[in-house]
Structures are given as structure tokens and as C-alpha cells.
Design a protein around this nucleic acid. Structure first.
Lengths: 225, 225
DNA sequence: ATTCATAATTTTGCATTCAAAATTCAAATT
DNA sequence: AATTTGAATTTTGAATGCAAAATTATGAAT
């Protein structure tokens, strides 16, 4: 494996980002052991900054560190889903309320454009593009709340249940429904209807919950260790 | 300074706990520089595990690490308060709803006892004891939600605005009001009235917000660097 | 062949070391 | 006296080293 050199910046920070990304992307799978040596080779760094990154990721719940036995990737359990989604729902609700209060007309107009592009991607059945734009919109609303604590906390939960793999598990119906909900979202936003935006965001999240849950249940069967 | 030896357990974990505690207790003050050497001497450890702990605490927003310039204690700003409390409020609300659903009668009865002891401490004007029991009750309700994600997220926010110093800033009136709210809380809990519990928890938090805000504004004037 | 004991190897936890950056201090100039 | 320049010192970032724990491999006994 050729050591992939990392551009300058605090190494532990960069490493944490990279490894986080690997977990989300599925390059590191749930319950997989992650020897330090491998990651050091992978990134061409020594163990010192790597271990700093591992501690941070463990603190965020993405890795499980067992003393003297190294790190494993934390899986997404049904319990996690049961716990995380109600909290995210409450946060979405707040996010919607704050976004309609704080977003500028310009910011909303920009989201409208992204939304239009996303609908186009949907019609073209371009799943990767759709997904990217979809994420962009959700992030736009969250950012629109103007609340740094909300954003940080939401992200920390979202990352614990977001894995690229489950995207494939979205059914045609659900996809159509998701797009329909996005239309309502944009309406609520332009009309600055906080209650409606909150409600549709929560409903939208509920659909995500079901998709993630199905994915977790499926992969539970697959990996009969 | 005599090196205070630490009982066995992952050092970085223990260190993170200790330093976190020092920040809450005010042993490390806002914006204070924290040279690694000092902390190493303080705890009798090398820089390796210490730095791991620092990275984790920085990730939690308790420290600010500036590359090549070390760590400083993150202060509580008015902006932090503005951001953090609305999120905590939403979480308190959820916590209340879940607690009435999930807590056992036994657990509620235990909280009642703690509550009685707290009222007694209030009557005796024993502020430290009152504070300890008060925290115990709030933790009991949060735990009563049975939601690990909620607890983790709440804690992460709470720790960013909780500093022992501001306790002193509570006025007589506010103290009395806080106790009165606690009475309502316990009623709501025994009657398993989720809406009421949510409401009183949020209201209670609002009072905390004002106390913390006053403390931050006061200490802003004090430390004219 | 399976189980157990024990030796060899690997991996982890933490201390130490070294280079680079930042800070401090002192002398020199104005 | 104030400012500036540059060396001496301190502090940080990251690699290396070393001991302890865990894992794997080896071989003997059943």
C-alpha cells in the first residue's frame, strides 16, 4: 500500500477527518478491527498523531477502543437508531423554526436553486447527484438556523447513523415521497412557516429512519460472525 | 508541585476527566494558557497521553488548540449561551416526555426522596448540598429518559456552560423559585404528565440561562485583559 | 484430531527524543 | 527610554523506543 501523503495541517485533525470519512464511506466496516500499523502505513504517519485521532473518533462514538486490544469500528445498532432519531427529530424541529426566522431571502433563493437542480437529478434518476444536492439542502437549512451548537450536535448524531451503504436501500416509492416532501419544505421556507417546516423535516427524517433501520436489519443478517 | 499519581485505567481517559473537572471547577480559568509541561507535572505523566486528552477536550469545545501555540481554556461567551440554551431546551422537553414514559415507579420514588432531601437542604440554606442533590435529580430525570444519545448530547452541551462559579450568583428569589419549580417537576413526574414536566423543565432551564448569562456578563467586565 | 501449555510474534500504552516553531531575553541602534 | 534585531530558551508536533499485554504459532499430551 503506497503511503498517501497528507497536506500540511494538524495531522491528528486531518487523520480524524480521513478516518471518519472512511467509516461513512464503508471503507472501514462495522466491527472491523483497525490496527494502528495499517492506518499508519495507509497515511504515512507515525502512531502518535494517529492515536490522537483515534481517541477523538472514539469520543465521538465512531470507534470503540478496548484497552490493550485496539480499535474497532462502531456499528450502527437498532438501539442506536431508537435513541438517535428521536433526538434528531427534536433538533430538526428547532432547526426548522430557527431557519425561517434567520435565513436571508438570498440564502433561501440559493436553496431554491439547489432544490430545482435536485428535482432535475431525481427526474434523471441520477442517484449520486441527487444525494449530493439533497445533503446540500439539508445542510443549508441547518446552517440557516444560525446556531452553531445546534449544527455541531446535529452533525455529531447524524454521523453516527449515516453510512453511504444504505442509500442503495431506498425504494422507488420512498424516493418519490422524499422529493415530494422536499417540495413542501421549500414552500414552508419561502413562506417562512416555521411550524410547517418543522413538521415536514421531522416527517422526512422519519422516512430516513425507516430506510436506515431496514439497512441495519439487513446487514445484521448478512454478517453472521 | 507534587505529582499526583493517577489510579490505573487508560491514562488519556482519566486525564480528560480530570482536566474537564478542573475547567468546571474553575481551577483552569477561561482563556488561560495551559502549557503541557505544567499538566504533565501536575499529573505525573508524559506528554503523549496528555496530548491525547487535550485533543479530545478540544473536540468537545472545552479547549482551544492553536497549532504550535498550545491550548487555552475555552471561555463561555454570550454567543455560546444564545446558541446552547435553545438546543438544551428542546432536549429537556424530549427528556421530560421520555422520562414519564420510561421511568419505573421505584425510580420515581427514589427521586422523590432526593427531592425531599434537597428541599431540606434549601431550608437549611446549605448551598453545596442543595446543589449536589439538585444535580442528582436532573441527572435522574435525564437518565430516566432511557435514551443514551439524548444523555450524551445533553451532557456535551451542559458541560460547555456549566461552571461552578456561577452558582454563587443565584439570588434568593431565584433560589426560591427554583425550588418551587422542582416541586412542580416532581408532581408532573408522579402523575406522569409529560407535557407538564417538559414545560417546567424548560422554564427551569430558562432560569438557569439567566443566571449563567448574568455570570458571563459580570466576568466579562472583570477580566479586562 | 482436539486440547492444553508455552514460546514466539505482534500490538498496544506510554515515555523519550528530536526537529521545528514560538517565545523570551539581551544587546545594539536610534 | 523605546524599538529592533538576533541569539538563547522554551514549547510544541511528531517519530522513535521500550516494556507490558495480547495474539498467534508450535508442540506435547490425551
Amino acid at each position: 500500500m503506497t503511503p498517501e501523503l497528507i497536506p500540511r495541517r494538524a495531522l491528528h485533525d486531518e487523520l480524524a477527518d480521513r478516518i471518519r470519512q472512511m467509516i461513512i464511506e464503508g471503507d472501514l466496516q462495522a466491527d472491523q478491527k483497525v490496527p494502528e500499523k495499517d492506518l499508519c502505513a495507509r497515511f504515512g504517519v507515525s502512531r502518535t498523531p494517529l492515536r490522537e485521532a483515534l481517541k477523538v473518533l472514539a469520543n465521538d462514538g465512531l470507534l470503540v477502543l478496548t484497552p490493550n486490544r485496539g480499535s474497532t469500528v462502531a456499528g450502527v445498532t437498532e438501539q442506536d437508531i431508537q435513541d438517535v432519531f428521536p433526538v434528531m427529530s427534536a433538533l430538526e424541529s428547532l432547526s426548522g423554526e430557527l431557519a425561517v426566522q434567520n435565513m436571508s431571502d438570498v440564502a433561501i433563493a440559493k436553496l431554491q436553486q439547489t432544490h430545482a437542480a435536485m428535482v432535475k437529478a431525481y427526474r434523471a434518476k441520477d442517484l449520486p447527484l441527487y444525494f449530493r444536492l439533497n445533503q446540500e439542502i439539508h445542510r443549508g437549512i441547518l446552517q440557516g438556523s444560525g446556531n452553531a451548537a445546534l449544527i455541531a450536535v446535529y452533525d455529531s448524531l447524524n454521523i453516527r447513523i449515516t453510512r453511504m451503504r444504505y442509500v442503495a436501500d431506498m425504494t422507488k416509492d420512498r424516493w418519490a415521497q422524499a422529493v415530494a416532501e422536499h417540495v413542501v419544505m421549500m414552500d414552508a421556507l419561502t413562506n417562512r412557516d416555521g411550524n410547517l417546516l418543522s413538521e415536514v423535516l421531522r416527517h422526512h427524517l422519519e422516512n430516513k429512519r425507516e430506510t436506515v433501520l431496514r439497512w441495519v436489519q439487513k446487514s445484521k443478517k448478512t454478517k453472521v460472525k
